[in-house]
């Protein structure tokens, strides 16, 4: 089988940026190539781990914002 995609296409595949046709080719190649499958699994699990890491402001910052909002609400009696 001739591999028609690159390692960079594998990255696009992991991030769902490949076409349906490319997906079919890559899925087939993964089934036929153990080394490629191992790389895919490794990259995919790292991506999944990254989704557990959040870059969000702290709760105190969010509370400050919401408190400011409430303090400026003219529709609410204070």
């Amino acid at each position: 089988m001739i591999q028609t995609f690159t390692q960079l296409d594998l990255i696009r595949f992991i991030y769902n940026e490949t076409t349906t046709e490319q997906n079919r080719d890559i899925e087939l190649a993964l089934l036929c190539n153990n080394e490629l499958m191992e790389e895919y699994k490794s990259l995919k699990s790292t991506v999944a781990t990254l989704s557990e890491v959040s870059y969000t402001p702290s709760n105190s910052t969010l509370e400050n914002i919401l408190n400011y909002s409430k303090s400026t609400n003219l529709h609410t009696a204070h």
Binding site: Q7, L8, L43, T46
Partner: peptide, 13 residues
């Protein structure tokens, strides 16, 4: 951009 992502994932791993 894709290459940087690939190296980033490999380095993180």
């Amino acid at each position: 951009a894709l290459g940087r992502m690939r190296y980033a994932l490999i380095n993180l791993r």
